[in-house]
Design a protein around this nucleic acid. Sequence first.
DNA 1: ATGAAAGCGCTAACAG
DNA 2: CTGTTAGCGCTTTCAT
Lengths: 329, 329
Amino acid sequence: MADVARVAGVSPMTVSRAFKRDASVSEATRSAILRAAEDLGYVFDATASNLRSQRTDFVAVTIPSLNNANFAETVSGLSEGLKDRGLQILLGYTNYDIHEEERLIEQLLRRRPEAIVVTGGRHTDRARRMLENAGIPVIETWDLPPHPIGHVVGFSNAAAVRGMVDHFVARGLTRIAFIGGDADRDTRGTDRRAGFIAAMQSHGLDATRLIAAGIPPISMREGADAMGRLLDTLPDTQAVIAVSDLSAFGALTECQRRGVDVPGRLSIAGFGDYEIGAICVPPLSTINPHPRDIGARTAALILQVLAGDGTQTSVIEVQPELTIRQSSL
Amino acid sequence: MADVARVAGVSPMTVSRAFKRDASVSEATRSAILRAAEDLGYVFDATASNLRSQRTDFVAVTIPSLNNANFAETVSGLSEGLKDRGLQILLGYTNYDIHEEERLIEQLLRRRPEAIVVTGGRHTDRARRMLENAGIPVIETWDLPPHPIGHVVGFSNAAAVRGMVDHFVARGLTRIAFIGGDADRDTRGTDRRAGFIAAMQSHGLDATRLIAAGIPPISMREGADAMGRLLDTLPDTQAVIAVSDLSAFGALTECQRRGVDVPGRLSIAGFGDYEIGAICVPPLSTINPHPRDIGARTAALILQVLAGDGTQTSVIEVQPELTIRQSSL
DNA sequence: ATGAAAGCGCTAACAG
DNA sequence: CTGTTAGCGCTTTCAT
């Protein structure tokens, strides 16, 4: 920066200002500085800026998996909402493991983010303590934890599934199974399964048709395998709710391979409103948790909190939407 | 850190050492320091460490889209290979736009990464200049550019498609169409389309059955729409290659909706070996570019280069694999 | 194995 | 609109 200042004939401080958005530098001076910088191949050093200004413009985000359209949508909505203010996302993934999440949170906090967004509301004790003491806004998403650490933008996974159970029951189906949610690593999956069980019981129905599908992320293949076991062991099942659209689609393909008519003999529903559910034949009933909205509203919340709008914490509920398609009609 | 030092009864320098992996601190001192840090809720400040040591332990990575299983696999393989050495990925996405890529590269370089990995081999002139002058290892991936900036870990998208054309021709099919690759934002898509045209011409076949599918990322829906137009306008087409498995699957569903037998009346192939192609009915022929290997080999290359193993640049070719399934048999 | 002094490259704070 | 001074919290370097 000193070199650029020398070439442009100004002080380093003026160069520093020229690189900021709204700093007061005359247009002529600024363009001369930027030209000098370009000529010299100077690249602004954010590490020094971060230290001195005590601002990094990072927003830390943890998601269970990179390769998941739902979480990708949330991150995308978040990123979109933050980039106008120059905030950049520092992303890490936990592989659906809260111990991995703990390690990740520690690493992320070392980078001194302005805020931290975590997926889910269940954490190790130490992770929780670190978040509580971080001194920055904390936002839990994709859940509605009973004791939030800070802010929340999410929904109840259990309640969302209840709507689908009600839909099946209203159609007169009673022998309903649930695929997935058995490994307690994926807290959203287990919550959905718990919601299924509670909803079935409240209807006075048998809630024991639970088919394990392995550790998350549940693949399409695992959904297909689970459906195979279901058809083998409980062939009188009338409807299936899968922990995600991906496993639901896998289950559908297994029905196709075995010549089981969907929805004639068996209804299927998923979760997440992934594109595949809308386009496959027949299209899948699902629950749309509005992942992009979660991201967008989280971004808006962060901007508001960083602008100093009060210190109270908000709980923003993004209502999941029951989406009924041909697979359950 | 000074506070921790005081509580632990040592100098800040010793605290600093206690937080490093292989620093020479007695075990007793180290554990006393770590306990003091935990008690005080101290979190190591990476921004200061970065500035003083001139090391960030960041590896910058640009990918076209977060929500893409192929790129997610590459990032995952990369991340896996880097984390043992404490290197963290700083990820940004370009939305398939080289101008967005230019902006992103500038932002990423300001964070002073140890190396930078970009997806693709085509860049704006300014982006290319920034990468050349960055003074860190540069790795282009998912392509085989004629004039690499630095290292390369990738494959020829055009050559990969040739293998699929040859497969169809060997089966006696001659009226072959290509879906996608029309928007020049996605250089990998256009390269695949160009490879299709070249391969068809080298067989003396008509290479004009090109169906546009819109701007990337091409959705399943766009694949289905493209297939609809193809069936409407060129109903005698015998085989279709789509720019990705996702659009190929969309195309397949359109055939299902119209009662067009696949592969009886029409063969379909995709690109990418996404899970959906392996499980849908019928399963899709595809080209597997081994995305995780690209990431893993990129990670290994970075570690080797950072360890100072010579200054020569490597071009590592990861061979795509033709995967023939029922959709083209 | 531990400590003292100096400084990484920028910007807050103040001045003009 | 521009400049001066000091210092962000670590770690390099050199000691012992």
